[in-house]
Structures are given as C-alpha cells and as structure tokens.
Design a binder for these strands. Structure first.
Length: 401
DNA sequence: TCTGGGGTCCTAGGACCC
DNA sequence: TCTGGGGTCCTAGGACCC
C-alpha cells in the first residue's frame, strides 16, 4: 500500500491532500492538538490552519509514514521527529491510529482474497499473492490481474497500492518498488541482469544495514557485484547459511511458497517513556507501567485465544542499549498476574543502575488456548502430545486407503 | 531534545538426556 | 579416569522487517 498510514488519514482529512503530512509519535501533545480541532462540523471541513505543525509538536518519537509531498524534504519513515522537524517544520503532524489502519488493512486484504485466495500476510500494509492458479493470472504476464486488484482496492477503500509481478517472492518484492506510487511492474526471469543487478544490495529483502556494510567493505555494492562472487567465497565470509542464501538471491532464485496461514510465536507490549525513568527514583511509576503492560499482553492473548509459557522482559537504557531476560514457567498461561510475577522475577536479574527509556513485556512459546498442549506442563509432555497428534494423522491417512 | 512498536528468525553456549 | 556422539530446551543477543 502506498504511504499507507498517511493515505488512510487523508481519507478522513481530504483537505490535507497535496500537503506535506507526517504520521508519527502518537505523543500526547499531538493527540491533544487533534482533539482540540474545531468541533461540530465534518472532519473534512476543518480548516488546514487548525492542524498541528511538526515544528510545534516535536518530542520523543519517530515518523511512521510521510506523504509523497513531504518526501522531497528528505523526511521518511523511521526518522526521529526532531530531525524531521528541522527538514520540514511546516509539515502537518498527525498521531498514529492503529485501529483505523488495521480496519483498512482488513478491507484491502478481503478485496484481494476474493480475487486471488492464495495471499500471504506480511503485516498491516503488505502481502504476497500467488497468481499461478487464478483465472487470467498469466495474461500480460500478470499485469491484467494486478490492474484488477489495484482497481478493486481503490474502489473499496479509496487507497492506492503498487504491485510487482515476478516469478518469485524475492523478485516481486523488488519489482513492487519500481513504480511507486500506484504503479504496476512486471519483472521476468530474463530481466535479472538489466533490472535487478544494477540495484544496491540493500534492496534485497533480508539484507539490512549490517550485512550491507560488510558487503561494502568487500567492495560489493550492487546485486550484480554480489552475483559475480563465487558461492564458496560468500560461504567463507558470511557463513554457510547466509553465504549460500546471498548467492541464490543475487541470481534471482527463491523457492519460498506463498504461506497463507501461520500461528503467532509471541505477543508483546512495550512502551517508551516520555522521560527516562530510574528503577529506584521512579519505582512507583515504573511499577504501574510494568503491571499495565502485563495486563495488556494478557488481554491480547485472551482476545486472540492463546496461552504462552515463556515470559520475558525488555529494557532499553538511556544509552539505547537493550537487555532482555526471559523465563519459561511450568504451565501455559494468559493470566495477567502470573505473567506479572514471572516478569517480575526476570526484572530482578537485569542491571537497573542506568536510567531506562523503554520497558516491554513478552509472552512466547504460544499455543492455542484449549489445545491439548496448553493443558500440559513439561516439554516432554508436549513431545508426547505431538507424537500422538502425528500418530493420529497417520492413522487417519491410513484409513483413507 | 536524535532514534516507536510489534513481530520473526538465527546463533551460540550451557544444561540435560540417552 | 577419560572420552563419545547424538538430541532438545532454555536463554541472551542481534539482525531484520513492516
């Protein structure tokens, strides 16, 4: 989806179309400014001058999305609000409204699955779609179906998206960035050298800042330069798995299927404080936040029907260093008190001298609430249960013949 | 007054078991 | 007394993605 969060906001406030707008922070001051907007009339009638400007509402936080008119100023996602305010002080800032984005996310995904049922969720604003078995999916190399999806999403939601069509997920993802916004790009296997190899390695989904830096130290800047290195050399310098993988992606090879269903592994809640807090000096405040986070995770687990067994905490100190601790407990749980107790024990094992800027609580090793595993207590029991389940599948399969 | 929140996957060492 | 190969789980950190 193109500038997803910002585009959803523009549906509410169409008067902001064409202006630099950034979504970010979710800081209290911005929330307040939005609440103080003139009332009574329709949202679309609020005068542009009434909206909060970035220069007036900066604070601790990052930009999640910037509209296209904001981008020439150098403003982009993940950028600190402070820095963004220097680059484009006149931009309008709006707080993040996840519930609304999730609502639109469900809408556009529904449109897609009604046309092409094999869809893989890649977060709130991105999906992979398997065109292979869709009637007409091969027409114009997939462009016709892409056009249909684009039109249908626009019709149902008022939002635009960019689509890349290619023989695999790796190439499709890169292709989707070729014609942004509201574009379609079809990449064929034989386009590898002309369209993929000139791109910087960083464009590969999975090569991040660290890997890119290391590649650059070896003088490898483009995907083509990566493809030119031999496999064994890459394995020697990047390890067996990563080296082999790099070689494959550089040659445009990717066999991963489109995965339509997956179970969550963990659920977490974390928060960055408005000011750094100290474990001793701000004990009460910190304790309240801690309990609140545990309650939120418990709520999430219960609402979605999961229980977990590994309880963990995450701290970010004022120097931005991160510490995590976790503990696996006897019984699967989604109970706020149980989570709070285990998380409390984790907290005792972590250094608390430095001021903290973030606290998080996580529950992992999830299974569905009410499932056989959820009733069990030890890893061995889980193993036994899984063996039984496997045996049951075998028995069922056998009975079919 | 730099730097969010929610995730996944990988690695590596140690405990423990057969 | 010293030395084996498996294997799984747990834990901490880190890279990466949306």
């Amino acid at each position: 989806m193109d500038a997803f969060y910002a585009s959803v906001e523009l549906l509410r406030y169409p008067q902001l179309k064409g202006l630099p707008v950034v979504i970010g922070g979710g800081r209290r001051k911005v929330d307040e400014a939005i609440r103080e907007l003139p009332e009574g009339s329709a949202l679309a009638d609020i005068p542009v001058e009434a909206f909060p400007l970035l220069r007036d509402y900066v604070g601790r936080g990052v930009i999640t999305t910037a509209t296209y008119p904001a981008r020439p100023f150098g403003v982009g996602s993940a950028m600190g609000l402070m820095k963004a305010a220097k680059l484009c002080p006149q931009a309008i800032i709006l707080p993040v409204d996840f519930d609304e984005y999730r609502r639109y996310s469900r809408m556009f995904k529904k449109v897609i699955t009604e046309i092409a049922p094999l869809m893989e969720d890649r977060g709130v604003d991105e999906v992979y779609i398997d065109f292979t078995e869709v009637p007409g999916g091969q027409r114009e190399g997939g462009r016709a179906l892409a056009r249909l999806i684009q039109r249908s999403i626009l019709q149902a939601t008022g939002l635009t998206c960019s689509i890349g069509v290619a023989p695999n997920k790796l190439l499709a993802k890169m292709a989707s960035e070729f014609e942004k916004p509201n574009g379609i790009s079809v990449v064929y296997e034989q386009d590898l050298q002309t369209r993929i190899w000139p791109l910087p390695c960083r464009k590969v989904n999975g090569i991040g800042p660290k890997a890119d830096e290391k590649l650059q130290r070896f003088g490898i800047r483009t995907i083509g330069e990566l493809a030119a290195r031999d496999r064994d050399w890459l394995i020697q310098n990047f390890g067996k798995a990563t080296g082999a993988w790099m070689h494959e992606v550089a040659w445009g090879r990717d066999e991963r299927p489109v995965v339509t269903e997956s179970e969550p592994v963990s659920m977490s809640r974390e928060t960055t404080f408005e000011r750094d807090l100290h474990a001793v000096r701000d004990r009460a405040e910190l304790g309240a936040i801690f309990t609140h986070l545990c309650g939120k995770v418990a709520e999430d687990l219960q609402r979605k029907g999961y229980v977990g067994k590994t309880i963990g905490i995450k701290l970010r100190y004022d120097d931005f260093k991160i510490a995590t601790r976790d503990q696996t407990i006897e019984q699967f749980t989604s109970d706020a008190k149980t989570i709070r107790q285990a998380a409390g024990r984790c907290l005792k094992r972590v250094p608390l001298e430095r001021p903290l800027r973030l606290l998080g609580v996580r529950v992992g090793a999830l299974v569905r609430a009410g499932s056989p595993e959820a009733m069990l207590t030890s890893a061995q029991d889980v193993y036994v249960a899984q063996s039984r389940a496997a045996a049951a599948v075998l028995a069922t399969t056998a009975s079919l013949f």
